Simulated scan of single mutants.
Amino acid sequence: MAKRVTLFEPPPLDASKAQIENVLELTPVVDIGPDVFTNSRPLWHPPGARGIYGGAAIAQSLAAAMRTVPADFAVHSMHCYFVLAGDSEVPIVYHVERVRDGRSFATRTVQARQRGRPIFTTTLSFSRANSGGKKQLNHATPMPDIPFPQEKTALKKVFDETGGGPFEAEKAGILNRDSVKPEEKRIRRWVRSRGTVTGGTHAHLSALAYITDSYFIGTVSRVHDIPRFSSPADLKRFLNALKNPSDLDDTDISRALKELKEEEAADLRRRLEGALDRAKDYKQQEDHKQVGMMVSLDHSIYFHNPWDFRSDEWMLTEMESPWAGEGRGLVVQKIWAKDGTLIATCTQEGVVRLKQDEPPRSKI
């Protein structure tokens, strides 16, 4: 008998909705309580990761909380902690607590549980639209002047929308790429949901939350020029992992390969052709660094303009890492809408540990 990875039989895909809306769909669990929800569909477990894609827990927790606030309230901040790795073969149950309801602000907490244990927790604050008054202070970091990605041909667009993941990404360059100071580098990407999101503001916010966790903590290793795959053997192991049917289906394999090609293949090729050719034996390099563990600890999103963007239009992300140390790293991400509006600022801290040299062996 096949394992059930959702509490209820997944409903048929809704062709009128974008793929990301179907992925993030929730089902109320009325037998437990009025503010309890569960994932309607199986959740993605990226190859090599300890658990499910964190963006799913972030986005579905936000979606659950938004169901408990008035329609004229929108989220303005969300502070999350990853407690345990999520198991893709076990349903997630989201418990929403209505902490406070005020005239201008409302507060919610959401705890995501598997097997009765919390795997993820978040506190969210919502503000009522137009509650800031007529006189306001306004400023925002402008969007960098970067050309938009070229639109694909009709045939290629149809293929991507039917054969890729719930969102797509295009590289937009690395500012200060040759700097010797990692904190000066800025990694930029264009991102957007595939298809047309039809669910209104809440659907666009959930989609944005889902996308924010993509390649986030990995920025720490990238600004240090440490590739995710530091040898051909590592890359081969990754590709073999993609063939595991218990983790991924054909769509997810295509998505992972596409992301690998777009985000890391060029850097990997450049480094392998240089560093690996210059030193056949890595152990002889005193300064060789290789990531041994990379896990997100917390994730915060400040939604600046929740009403003024579409997640299915190109959004520009810019990531930087102002600090790393003590086996951890911090990344800050800014996100602009297509028209240049700064729509969100995100932060993420995670464990970033390097593989350590083998301790000297005793001569006795």
Rank of each mutant, 00 (worst) to 15 (best):
4 R>V: 13
5 V>M: 12
5 V>R: 13
7 L>W: 01
9 E>S: 00
10 P>V: 02
11 P>Q: 09
18 A>V: 03
19 Q>R: 14
21 E>I: 03
22 N>V: 04
25 E>P: 00
25 E>Q: 15
27 T>N: 05
28 P>R: 10
29 V>K: 08
30 V>K: 15
35 D>F: 14
47 P>I: 08
48 G>V: 03
49 A>T: 11
53 Y>F: 13
53 Y>A: 00
58 I>T: 07
58 I>G: 03
64 A>H: 02
69 V>Q: 03
76 H>N: 11
82 F>K: 04
83 V>E: 06
85 A>S: 12
86 G>E: 03
86 G>R: 02
87 D>G: 00
88 S>H: 13
89 E>P: 07
102 G>R: 12
105 F>P: 05
107 T>V: 14
113 R>T: 12
113 R>Q: 14
117 R>Q: 01
133 G>T: 00
139 H>L: 09
140 A>N: 00
146 I>F: 05
147 P>D: 01
149 P>D: 05
150 Q>L: 07
153 T>H: 02
156 K>T: 13
158 V>G: 01
160 D>W: 14
166 P>R: 04
168 E>D: 09
182 P>Q: 00
184 E>K: 05
185 K>V: 03
190 W>Y: 04
193 S>T: 06
195 G>H: 09
220 V>C: 10
220 V>K: 00
237 R>E: 14
240 N>F: 06
248 L>G: 01
249 D>Q: 11
257 L>R: 09
258 K>A: 09
260 L>T: 06
262 E>P: 04
263 E>V: 01
277 D>T: 15
286 E>V: 13
292 G>A: 01
296 S>G: 03
297 L>C: 10
314 W>K: 07
318 E>A: 06
320 E>G: 10
321 S>G: 08
322 P>K: 12
323 W>H: 10
326 E>F: 15
326 E>L: 14
327 G>D: 04
333 Q>S: 12
337 A>K: 03
341 T>R: 03
342 L>P: 05
343 I>N: 06
349 E>M: 02
349 E>N: 10
